[in-house]
Design a protein around this nucleic acid. Structure first.
Length: 330
RNA sequence: AGGUCUGUAGUGAAAUGGUAUCAUCGGGGUCUCCAAAACCCUUGUUCCGAGUUCGAAUCUCGGCAGACCUG
């Protein structure tokens, strides 16, 4: 039994590769992109579903508040003319939550574990596709150091504090914890808030014994073993810039602005979790008349490039941490 | 052609004649429940030439470039 993981930078052709592998290994795709989990964010996040097949979404089960289901990717798609399929291929974990809902890597790991188990039980090959390295790490390794769940009320309260106040607060609760942080974390409000959240939770939730990392996911699924096969996709900046520029233009041509208008009309706001996404942030400015299209497009492109760079840093590190053999050349 | 104003990192700006600064971009990184997020580190600049001065981005002269005004 194996799990294939197709990951890498944005705009580098992961989905096509995943579809190719799905044909070869009788596989089903599982989205691993932290933005495509949101309902209604389709064009700008680049979901690989044609507009005409909304009805093909099939809800299979609900895990907590999350809708778990799949789209059947049709054998041909205008978005990928070069890639024709012999049969429709399912893609799971699109459209899990509403853009107003919070969704974390922990929750992603729960959903993905369930889907992987299901696919394997049907004797098919699960193929993870997506560039969210943190989700992959959470899914494939044991990251549980505590059982402290996000407390959004506490986070909202703490987010009103200044950086210094947050630092002081953490120092007061747990001086060693604060001193142990590196410079980047000490100045990072989000990280400080999480540290405060953990250290002010009941003691019995604060530590958890870790399991053996080697077989973490296999153990969760009750399997003897599960092999991982990795494909990484990276590109040099110059090429990436061209790809991203084209992609941004394509998304505009496909109706990106209308998508943003539709979401705003439905009442979604700039700071809803799903809306804090590259592309949406810039186009909201255009729709609200605060920004001209050219400026927005440039910023959108720059943000995508910066994001792609962070992806490379994170995924390279994941690669080192997990001693991964990369098969992307094959 | 004449006049006025302006030339400072790739870009936008700051600097009573006294260590050229900030933002952004670029490069590198951090991150065990917000990760398309948040944060940390970092390369690089006074249009050219001459002069005044202990010392010039700053003052003077000449050149070059741009913007605007007037025939």
């Amino acid at each position: 039994m194996k799990l294939i993981i197709v990951t890498g930078q944005t705009a580098t052709g992961k989905t096509n590769k995943a579809l190719e592998l799905a044909e070869k290994y009788n596989g089903e795709l599982i989205n691993c992109d932290s933005r495509q989990i949101y309902k209604g964010l389709d064009i700008i996040t680049g979901k690989d579903i044609p507009k005409s097949v909304e009805s093909r979404w099939s809800l299979v089960e609900r895990i907590d508040d999350f809708d778990i289901g799949f789209y059947s990717l049709p054998t041909t798609n205008d978005q990928r003319p070069a890639c024709q399929l012999a049969r429709p291929i399912p893609i799971w974990l699109y459209d899990i939550v509403d853009p107003q809902q919070h969704f974390s890597s922990f929750e992603y790991a729960q959903c993905a574990t369930a889907v992987i188990g299901d696919i394997l039980s049907r004797k098919k090959t699960p193929i993870l596709v997506g560039g969210t390295g943190f989700y992959l790490r959470h899914l494939l390794t044991d990251m549980a150091q505590n059982k402290v769940e996000p407390d959004w009320n506490l986070r909202a309260e703490l987010s009103l504090l200044t950086l210094n106040q947050l630092q002081d607060k953490l120092k007061k609760i747990d001086k060693d914890e604060y001193e142990g942080l590196n410079n980047s974390e000490k100045n990072n409000p989000q990280r400080l808030i999480r540290r405060i959240e953990i250290t002010s939770a009941p003691k019995d939730l604060q530590t958890v014994k870790q399991t053996n990392n080697d077989n973490y996911l296999a153990n969760l699924l009750g399997l003897k073993s599960l092999a991982f096969e990795w494909r990484f996709f990276f590109k040099e900046r110059e090429e990436l810039e061209l790809l991203i520029r084209n992609r941004v233009q394509n998304r505009l041509d496909e109706g990106a602005i209308d998508e943003v208008k539709k979401l705003l009309d439905k009442g979604y706001q700039e700071n809803d979790p799903g809306m804090k996404t590259i592309g949406y942030q810039q186009l909201i400015g255009v729709v609200k008349g605060k920004c001209d299209l050219e400026t927005a497009v440039n910023e959108w492109t720059v943000r995508e490039l910066q994001y792609a760079k962070r992806q490379k840093t994170y995924l390279k590190k994941l690669e080192r941490d997990l001693y991964i053999d990369n098969l992307s050349a094959q």
